[in-house]
Design a binder for these strands. Structure first.
Ligand SMILES: NC(=O)c1ccc[n+]([C@@H]2O[C@H](COP(=O)([O-])OP(=O)(O)OC[C@H]3O[C@@H](n4cnc5c(N)ncnc54)[C@H](O)[C@@H]3O)[C@@H](O)[C@H]2O)c1
Ligand SMILES: NC(=O)c1ccc[n+]([C@@H]2O[C@H](COP(=O)([O-])OP(=O)(O)OC[C@H]3O[C@@H](n4cnc5c(N)ncnc54)[C@H](O)[C@@H]3O)[C@@H](O)[C@H]2O)c1
Lengths: 213, 213
DNA sequence: CAATAGTCGTTACGTTTTTCACAATCTCGC
DNA sequence: GCGAGATTGTGAAAAACGTAACGACTATTG
């Protein structure tokens, strides 16, 4: 398909959903026009960076005016494939997994947790946040046409489950376990390591003093 | 205090907790020696990057040998201030907040959620994961000597709570709400935007095809 | 003890990302 | 319809980051 946008910097790609959400908010509020400066204040990204990011997609704005919210929204909706929903599976219905099931990612978003898996028999068969929970043995059988998984199992189980996901044909894994899993090259893994994030924040506070005034 | 390490790149600083955790694991397993190559495979960071990262702290290893696990561990323990516990407050005991309260960050970590706040009266006074839940009105009164907060309130409440945290003298906020909060320069905010992370992963899958083989 | 294999620390280089700064262009009120 | 003011898009420079490569040194083996 359209591969011409292959040169969009990764740093830019990561910001796109953020832009999209805010533009969506503006549209809901009935605003019809926005400048890179306003956007910058709202999403806390330098305005030059925003203009540069947008420019990878061509000239989306008008000089002296800014950006038309409706146009921007429809453009990003298309670019981020907001019209087709991506189905997601969640593995490990524990503390974190349950929280995600209760959260409606579909608001402002094209992703939907379609099915969840766990080992604990008392959870199997129940439904949390409209998502049915199946036994992990059903993983391979029920994962057809699901290409993204959220991994919230204990870290000791992470690699084993990852291997099974790969065998079942997964494309992407959002890994919340501290385990750095090994997968083939054609599978993309994003790690979100909450303990590391917290510890890094503490480190920054102690060693990178900010302007006291 | 020791400000000489002020020039450690941010990218390096963010990896330190990751290194620390793995070195800790090695030590627990009784390993006494490790090379940058082994570390690299475990934490999925290029071995040259690891050597470079370590080198900002001086010569921690021995050529031809690698790194002594015990030495490395004690060094990082000190560097990451693992001996003093950082007390953390959590605001918003909902789905996500509850999950965090159940999680013991103190394992492998120098941080401890000491107190939580919410508005819902049925939660006040209860204890989740050893953490007492107080009414949000108590925020200012009970936040003395707490310098870090985890923010898991609805996004509509985020800025208001952030302002109160700032007034109460907070230094750092780990913000899980989609709201990009505004704070004075001397307060550090790290955003973890789970919906954005998920959406970004989906975007990468569709637009950055990896090597199929 | 010499030869070999292993590994670090660092230099040099390439890439990615951010930021500055401003000409080009547009808007809008008068 | 004009001119002052606003804002974009982008070239160029700077900053940040990652990695290949290799000299220097160490451990280990025979
Ligand atoms: N809860 C947090 O705040 C938090 C913070 C940082 C990291 N994490 C990480 O997130 C992961 C999940 O944390 P949690 O607190 O939700 O843990 P949890 O123990 O509450 O949940 C894990 C769930 O996975 C299920 N499970 C175990 N083995 C399984 C398997 N083989 N297949 C399918 N399901 C299986 C368990 O039955 C349980 O329901 C852990 O790796 C943890 O280290 C959690
Ligand atoms: N749960 C998820 O998976 C998820 C995913 C992405 C983002 N988020 C974000 O994380 C945040 C929390 O999500 P959640 O699912 O836990 O929401 P939630 O509604 O379950 O929890 C919010 C909690 O905050 C409390 N609260 C409300 N106003 C408050 C105030 N002024 N002071 C103190 N407490 C207050 C509520 O009583 C509730 O207990 C939200 O901003 C949400 O957008 C959550």
């Amino acid at each position: 398909m359209e591969m011409e946008q292959n040169k969009i910097p990764q740093a830019t790609a990561k910001r796109l959903p953020l832009y999209y959400r805010f533009i969506n908010n503006l549209h809901t509020q009935g605003k019809s026009r926005v400048s890179s400066k306003e956007l910058s204040e709202a999403v806390k990204v330098d305005s030059a960076t925003i203009r540069r990011d947008f420019s990878y997609f061509g000239a989306l704005g008008k000089k002296g005016y800014g950006y038309n919210v409706e146009y921007l929204l429809s453009f990003f909706r298309q670019t981020l494939d907001q019209d087709e929903t991506t189905e997601v599976a969640l593995i490990g219905v524990g503390n974190l997994g349950t929280a995600f099931l209760h959260y409606n990612f579909t608001k402002n978003n094209n992703t939907k947790i379609q099915i969840a898996f766990d080992t604990q028999s008392e959870k199997i068969g129940s439904v949390i946040g409209n998502v049915p929970i199946e036994h992990i043995d059903q993983l391979e059988a029920k994962m057809s046409n699901i290409s993204v998984a959220i991994l919230t199992v204990p870290s000791s189980a992470a690699q084993g489950i990852a291997d099974r996901l790969v065998a079942a044909g997964i494309s992407g894994i959002l890994n919340f376990t501290p385990a750095r899993i090994t997968v083939p090259e054609h599978v993309r893994v994003h790690h979100i390591d909450l303990a590391v994030e917290l510890q890094a924040l503490v480190y920054f506070l102690k060693h990178y003093p900010l302007e006291e005034e």
